[in-house]
Simulated assay, not measured.
Amino acid sequence: MDYLQASYYLDFNHKNIKKITSKFNDGGLSDKEKAIKLYTFVRDNWLYNPYDITLLKDHYKASFIAEKPSGNCIEKSVLLVACLRGLHIPARLHLGKVKNHIAVDKLTEKFGSNELTPHGMVNVYLNDKWLKLSPAFNKSLCKKFNVPPLDFDGENHSFLQQYNSKGNLFMEYLDDYGHFADVPLDFMKANIKEHYPHIFDTDESITEFNL
């Protein structure tokens, strides 16, 4: 499988993505250093917003996401995968199901559950191994909820914020759907409709909702 390839969604040759990758395309930086800097850039420059979800195909293009001020976990992961590939670093999307335990009132109100699925992460290939990382929660949001931000050192996984600074359970992973070379939109649609059927009415043509 080619995890360096561009696609309809991972359109890293688009000017919006090149504008980002140009910041990290210094020949003096190693792939590890580029990945660390890029991860932090995507984590903190797009605010995390789990309440704005779309099933429209073109809204999952990295170039489209790049122009937004915020994104959900999948959107931010798609953007990071595209940018990593644009820097010739192998990367792929990883999906799972998570449960939040802090500040869940709004989540429960909107989704009927404090479980979020599919939850987006990223796999990056560095130094002959795949590393799992999550760029979802920006630093300012983590500060608000008293949770240490997820830093990435280029050598270890960085995807699970299990506890906040007080030792209270923050997040747990319930299921792992595996990795994908491209955005699996059909799988995502089926997964969302299965877990949140109340969001959709009987009109199957509805493909977008804002929560």
Rank of each mutant, 00 (worst) to 15 (best):
I102S: 01
H94P: 00
D128Y: 14
A103W: 03
L133Q: 01
V104W: 03
K139A: 06
K132C: 07
L107N: 08
A136R: 10
K144Y: 13
P148A: 01
N146D: 05
L133M: 05
T117D: 02
L126K: 08
D153C: 12
L116C: 08
N123Y: 12
V147Q: 01
K99Y: 01
V122W: 15
K132V: 09
H119T: 02
S134Q: 10
T108L: 12
P148G: 00
K132W: 03
P149D: 00
N127K: 15
V98S: 05
V104N: 00
F145S: 01
K129S: 10
D105P: 14
S134N: 15
L150F: 13
F111A: 09
F145I: 09
L141P: 00
G120L: 04
S113E: 09
P118S: 05
C142L: 02
K144D: 08
A136Y: 07
K110E: 13
H101W: 02
G112M: 10
F145E: 05
V104C: 13
L150V: 07
N100V: 07
L93Y: 09
F152E: 06
D128C: 10
P118N: 03
L133G: 01
K110C: 13
D153R: 04
G112Q: 11
E109H: 11
H94F: 11
L150E: 07
P149E: 00
